[in-house]
Each structure stands twice: as C-alpha cells, then as structure tokens.
Amino acid sequence: MNSRKIELVVGFFVALAIAAVLMLAFNVANKGITGEGETYDLYAKFDNIGGLKVRSAVKVGGVTVGRVTSIKLDDKDFTPVVTLTIAKQYTNFPETSSVSILTSGLLGEQYVGLQPGFSFDGIEPLKEGDFIEDTKSALVLEDLIGQFLFSKSKD
C-alpha cells in the first residue's frame, strides 16, 4: 500500500474520531452549562439539602439553567450553603425569586427548582454573589412519615 493511500485512510480514521467526540459532546453530554461558556454564581442557604449533590441541576420551570457547583456547611450557624452556577444567558431573575429542593419523580434525582418572583419597581435583579433569601428545604421522607403519624395520633 502506498503512502498516499495510508494517509487517506488515517485521515478517515481521525475524522471518525472527531465525529465521535462531537457526538459525545453535543448529543450525549450537556455541553455549555458549567462546561464551557460564561456563568455567574448565586448562593442559597437551606435548612436541609436532603440528597442534593454537586452537579445536580438547577431548573426554572423544568429548563436546566445551571448546576450546583459546591455544597458547604456555614461554620457559624451550621446550615448548608449551596452554590448555584447559572449560565450567563439566564440573567435578571428578581431578588424575590425563591429556590426549593425538588425531586424528579418518586425516587428520582434531586434538583434545585428556581421560582422567579414578581419584579416591580425597586426590586433589583440577582447578581453574581447574591444570596437567595427565600428557600425551601428538601422533603425528607422520614420527617414526612413522622408528621403523618403525628397528625394521625392527634385524631
């Protein structure tokens, strides 16, 4: 086999590999959010984060707008602080927005649901580094069952 032919076949091989990478990047993985592209960070304090993990999704009405990039415990008041990294294309959420930890399906993954608040005069949009004040913690199954039993026994 002459060298021109070999170069051609190797070129085909490389093109195939590039196609595979592109497929993995665009069809399989969600490139963009936290991968590349510009982002900004918001913070939220929860009483209980349940099963939330780093890399869990942040969704607005079901649309993924960002990811959880770190979970730490505040060393003064011992509550978890969650860092939400949001893509730059989704800005101008008003200060009155709220976040809650939700579960997809009965046993599915937990994610952060962001509920945009009403915006009227005097309400600033959320900026890099802001804390979201209005948070709802995760539902913990044991607490739920406990509450249910408690209310039953009162009857």
């Binding site: 990478v21 993995l24 990047a25 069809n27 399989v28 993985a29 969600n30 490139k31 936290t34 991968g35 890399r55 999704a57 993924t64």
Partner: peptide
C-alpha cells in the same frame, strides 16, 4: 433515552 442522558452526562466530568 437522549434527553435524560444529556441532562446526566457532563462533558468535562464524564467525557
């Protein structure tokens, strides 16, 4: 098949 894959797989962390 595709969409849940896309929301779970992260380019940097997995690929």
């Amino acid at each position: 098949y595709w969409s849940i894959m896309q929301s779970t797989v992260d380019f940097r962390a997995d690929v």
